[in-house]
Design a protein around this nucleic acid. Structure first.
Lengths: 181, 181
DNA sequence: GAATTCATGTAATCAGTTACATGATTGA
DNA sequence: TCAATCATGTAACTGATTACATGAATTC
């Protein structure tokens, strides 16, 4: 089973949900770490159901609209635990289109390169502000037991990454400007 | 055209190469920012050739072994410049399986979580040491003109990312240990 | 009444990995 | 002569995105 399957199991371990709600989770709570469109989620749910890792009950919204509320089974919980405990394999640097463009930026005008660096910096500052707003929801350090603690660690990781990226882009801009004078 | 095509154009802009050499570049120089296997590179070269962005000469190694040395065409250089100058689009956080496992780590024993964090920290420290060794090759700040400068900026980005990741993992371990006492 | 959100799916396509397949060259 | 590296491709499959397709419920 692929990573997406475990991501879904993990979400359903927290609470039962419909496919639609899962797709919203990938845009909000899991935004930092994974993503998936509904067109990938629905077939995956079918597979997890056939593997006996989840089950569902049909509920009615309004008068006719059917929705399937998925729940993790004991077998699903075991599969999730096994996966979450296993080591992650060797490091692999994620592909980064911005860095690739920068890597080949010696063939473009210097002021254009500065422009792209500044744009990017603005984007990362905005993202950083968003994550820091999310952290404010934790007024106190959550207890190590429970999912809030895991959430908090991942949140700190996002802040660390965005801060480092902003500092790096600032350094790049400084170096670009320095040599111009 | 996809990003891989531009990565190849960028490499061929630096120097003419065979498909085999390109695949080695993705493992070494471009390791920080992009990757591709030879099974993806050869078909892509065919496409770039048919689009008139690259051409090749057949050379002979030894007595019979043919190799195709690819060269970027003027049209290819223009396509590369256009791409490198264009903005990168909205930020999208890369998928991160380690953070995903951590996100769901509330269902595993705490000492197992610490073990995984320590493993990961060791991996990132090793990577950091490797990148810093690469930086030592730059004894002096390269001039803004030329590709060495772009290389240097990307290298700094790798160091920034690895340092931030190491510090974050150290913080996670501290928080995990703190609450245990 | 109109727009947005809720809700579920499939089809076509693209990007990327793993496996299959072959053979020459070089250096120990 | 044996292993590692050089060298080039194709095939099958998996993961993921975009587009196609439909319709109910809610809110303005």
């Amino acid at each position: 089973m692929g990573t997406l399957g475990y991501a879904i199991l993990g979400l359903l371990h927290r609470r039962s949900m419909t496919g639609y709600e899962l797709s919203k989770e990938f845009e909000s709570g899991l935004f930092e770490v994974w993503s998936a469109k509904h067109s990938q989620i629905y077939p995956e749910l079918k597979g997890l159901y056939e593997a006996g890792l989840i089950e569902y009950q049909v509920e009615i919204s309004g008068t006719v609209l059917e929705k399937k509320v998925y729940t993790i089974t004991p077998a699903g919980q075991q599969a999730l635990r096994d996966w979450a405990q296993a080591p992650c394999g060797p490091l692999q640097t994620p592909k980064d289109e911005f860095r690739l463009r920068l890597f080949f930026s010696d063939c473009i005008p210097p002021q254009r390169r500065r422009q792209r660096l500044e744009e990017r910096l603005a984007q990362h500052r905005q993202r950083l502000a968003q994550i820091e707003k999310d952290r404010e929801k934790f007024d106190t350090l959550p207890p190590r037991e429970g999912q809030a603690f895991s959430d908090y660690l991942v949140l700190l990781g996002g802040i660390a990454r965005e801060e480092a990226t902003c500092r790096w882009l600032e350094t790049c801009l400084e170096l670009c400007r320095q040599q111009e004078a």
